[in-house]
Structure formats: structure tokens, C-alpha cells
Design a protein around this nucleic acid. Sequence first.
DNA 1: TAGATTTTGCAACTATGTTGCCTTTTCATA
DNA 2: TATGAAAAGGCAACATAGTTGCAAAATCTA
Lengths: 146, 146
Amino acid sequence: MSKQATQDMETRIASLLKRSDLSVTESRRKILHLFLEQTGALAHGDIERKAGEKFDRVTVYRTLQTFVEKGIIHTIPTADNSIRYALCKDECSGGHHHDHHIHFVCSQCDNTYCLDDVVTPDIKLPKGYQAEHVEVVVEGVCKNCR
Amino acid sequence: MSKQATQDMETRIASLLKRSDLSVTESRRKILHLFLEQTGALAHGDIERKAGEKFDRVTVYRTLQTFVEKGIIHTIPTADNSIRYALCKDECSGGHHHDHHIHFVCSQCDNTYCLDDVVTPDIKLPKGYQAEHVEVVVEGVCKNCR
DNA sequence: TAGATTTTGCAACTATGTTGCCTTTTCATA
DNA sequence: TATGAAAAGGCAACATAGTTGCAAAATCTA
């Protein structure tokens, strides 16, 4: 990455944090960096492995929690009991960070993608059930693994 | 429950196990019983609490694992990192235990329901992605909590 | 009912997540 | 640009969740 690009990235990260009323700290910058420099979602373990040398496990937990609360990232449920986190699009705001795209988990490479252009379908529920939020996770083979 | 009904339940449980080539043991009977006598799904913790006095934690883990492999129960992904298990309908068979109903999690009572009559919708994916399985979890307020 | 096979319980271990408290860093403002 | 209140981080200790190997017990076959 060029020096210019790195500079841009850092500026972007700082303004993202400030917009959410968060102070700009080293661990937050580092973790946001991880999300920005990759397409898929990250599991807690991934982040700990990539940032863990420098930061305490607890800090990673707390940072992710804060980011979720502020609507910077969102969680993706999976069947294997390992929450994944992914960046929210800019429209997301605190407390309202479920937007309506679906998620795709590749059964080959195990990457998780937000398919931002695929909206969750309307689901017709039986009488008496009232939907508040619909979560769709598709498992299959991704673009790169075919 | 009448003696007759209990008898029926036990017979049903035994044949369910035998059909899956599983020996009929006390812990398997107990755990299946828990599933049969209730509508919603059960988390590992629920089961451990309800059966845990009598059985070892490890046994509960192994039993659930076995049941999933044999297609007796299936897992339900949730956003809060706590896998729920629910009975499969009879058509489910080993290795093929994802059937196509959706799941509903009540935000009030926290119960999870299999809505067996609501099939998962077709999702149109971007070019290159190939779906193998679609998981839909709807969060909202259930029949009983309104 | 005996013996091979399967399942269980126990102990020990790893991984994952949480809490309280004190130190360090950040940031507003003087 | 120095300073002090507030926020965030690190550490230790703890709690929960999940796994493995092995010996004992229960189940099933014939």
C-alpha cells in the first residue's frame, strides 16, 4: 500500500471513530484496520490472532462490543457457534445496526460475506407471530472457490 | 400424564432410537423425552440443567452430537452464540437433517420455534455464488407473548 | 447369560467470555 | 502545550463452554 493510501485509511478510520463519539485509540484503530482491509467477516478468534500480540484479549472483546453498540460492525449468526463480525455500511447507526442484507458462508473456504445487494425476503408467518427482524444465512460455494 | 401415555412415549422413544441404529440408554431416553415433551427448541444449557443431575456434562454433549448426526435433532443458529437444538420431523434422515422450514425466536420469552409450515424462500444470489442451504431465523414476538 | 461392543463417567485440559480494579491514554480547555 | 477529568486498556482472577483419553459400566447379539 502506498504511503498516500495508508494515510487515507488512517484518516478514514479516525473520522469513523469520531463520528461514533469514540476516542481514537491504538487498539480501535488496529481492529478497524483489520475490517477495512478485507472483504469477508471476521470471527473473534481471527481478530485476536491478528491483533492479539499487541492487545489484551479483554480489550478485543470490549472493542468489538463497543463497535456493535455504535453500529460500526454487526454480528452474523452461524450454525457452528462462532459469531462473525462484519463492517456495517455507512447508513447503519447505533442501536439500528441490522440492515437488511443477507449473509453467505462458503463451505469450502469458510469465509463469510455480506451480500449487500441481496435484501432479505418477506416471510409470511402463521397467525399470531409478529416479525421484528429477519436473518438469512446462505451456505454454499463462493465466487472464488468454484 | 396417564400411565398409558407414558408407556406410549417410552415406546415411541425406543423405536426412534432403534430406527437410527442407536442403543437405548437411559441418558438418550431422558434427553429425547425432554425434546418430545415440549414445543420449542432447547439450548445445551437447558438440557444440562434438566438432565444434568443424573448425567455427566460430557454425556449430554455426546448425546446431542449423536442425535444431530443421526438426523434426530437439528441445530438452529442464533445471534447470541448459543446453539439451540430441536427435533427433526420424521422425514429427516442422517446426513440430511436440514429440512426447509424457518425458525422463530421470541424476543420476549426467548423461546425458539420451528415453523414447520413456513418454507425457506428462494434467494437470488449474485453471479458466482452457489447456494447449498438457506437458513432463516425470524426474531419477533410469538403467539403466546402478545 | 457370556462376551464383544457401545456408551458412560471421570479427570484433566483448552478455549471462550466476563468482572473488578488500578494504570495509562485520550481529549477538551484553559 | 500543559493539565486534569473521563474514557479506555491491562492484568488477574474467575466463570462457562467444549474436548479428549481412558477405564468402568451398560447394552445388545446370539
